[in-house]
Simulated assay, not measured.
Amino acid sequence: MSRQHIGVLFGGVLLLVVAMGISRFAFTPILPFMRIDEGMTFEAAGFLASSNYIGYFIGALGAGYIYRQKKNFLLITVVLNVLSILCMGITHSYLLWIILRFIAGITAGYIFVLTSSIILDYLAKHFLSRWSGYLFSGIGLGIAISGLFVPFFEASFSWEGTWIGFGILSTIFLITTMTLWRSITIQDGEKVEKTRETKIFRGFMPWLVIAYGLEGLGYIITGTFLVDIIYNIESLRPFASFSWVIAGIAATPAAPIWMALISKMSTVKVLSIAYILQIIGILLPVFSQTAWSVLLSALLFGFTFVGIVSISTAYVRELFPKQSGAVVSILTTAYALGQIVGPIMASGFETLFNSYKAPLTFAGTIIIFALATLLFGKLFSDRKQLNQITELQNE
């Protein structure tokens, strides 16, 4: 792999660090400090999270319609994303937080879909698709960075300074990517005709999209409230921020590891293993509230959610190589739709039962449904395809 290829890939990794690891998930370890200092309720925090995910839904949907000047459009959205991070630290208005998290969500949706499309297409063009898993390590790396830096920033500059610090860090990452990509020409995608929907939504694809949407709904409850839940168990409070570091460390090498497993097993089998491990991770704190159980929960969360994202995204791109932007957008939109509902339902369950166990149990149940949908969908689509082949042979 040449230095230029490494530079392009690393630039993509840094953009995912900014958009996913920092812009989206730094909110998780910062949330406990914001809630205490600002007197924010669990329910208010849920709406704040959902604002971000509504934006992410819109951004992911819109990104599927960007066919020209992808690189320039992408970099502009990153600038807006970084500004939304910085501004979180200079206001105490809940309404402005809602707006800023919404902007962060829209831009993050565009960044994830466009970066994935650009880099996966670039690697495929240069016969380097085996390196695609490393792109998604940016999500885990960003989570690890947010988990490591939040305690340091917060102790010195409070939660306001933490957001500003992350804004400065994100600016550095953006400048680095622009430097690495300065002489790179990203080929524009082909505009797909309106018939694409009928061609894309066939076979196993609809089942995969539904399962992925349920995954978005279930995983985000842990992704949003994990640190806050641990922080509110007094005996485990010292492990709260550390749990997010564990999640990030586990997530960083996750994508390459999961992608390597695909060469030994079928994609659906690997996805099923990831779903099962995630269910165990989500439900662990329900049955055991010890340091090892919550840290293992964080590890399984980080390792599996990035794996599911990377496998699913690469898989649909493989199924529809000429429509990478469209299919990644459809998949991510379903994921984002689940994320919008997740935090609101989680806060509702927590309020109703006055226990963090309720939203975690709900999240685990949803992932079980996701796994069932995946397996049933594969069985159904394979049987339907076999019947069609048999009918053709009999004609």
Rank of each mutant, 00 (worst) to 15 (best):
S51M: 02
W244A: 03
F166N: 05
I340S: 07
T77P: 00
G147E: 04
S116F: 13
A334V: 09
F152A: 15
I36V: 11
W159N: 00
Q187H: 15
G11S: 13
L141I: 01
Q388E: 12
L277I: 08
R202P: 14
A298D: 13
K191W: 12
F380R: 02
Y356D: 07
L95I: 03
M265H: 14
S183A: 15
S183V: 14
Y134I: 11
T332P: 05
L135G: 07
I139H: 01
T185E: 15
I186L: 09
Y53V: 03
T390P: 08
M20H: 00
S241D: 11
G140P: 04
I164T: 13
T304N: 10
V78H: 03
M40G: 05
K125P: 09
E234M: 12
A63L: 05
S2F: 09
G348T: 03
S312K: 03
D382W: 13
K71H: 11
G248S: 03
I249R: 04
L148W: 12
L296W: 01
L16N: 02
R35D: 12
T222E: 10
A144S: 13
M1I: 05
E234G: 12
I200S: 12
Q4V: 07
N387H: 10
T332Q: 05
K194T: 14
I164N: 10
I282W: 14
I279C: 04
I220E: 03
G133I: 14
D382T: 12
Q4E: 08
S241W: 12
L169C: 14
L148R: 11
L14Q: 03
G213D: 08
P238Y: 02
S243V: 09
V13F: 00
P343E: 13
I186S: 05
I311H: 09
L120K: 04
G62K: 01
S272V: 09
R237N: 08
I139Y: 01
I257M: 12
T351G: 08
W163Y: 14
K191Q: 15
V82G: 01
E391L: 11
Y335R: 07
G64F: 07
G11Y: 04
W97S: 00
V13T: 00
T28Q: 09
Y219M: 10
S243M: 13
F33M: 13
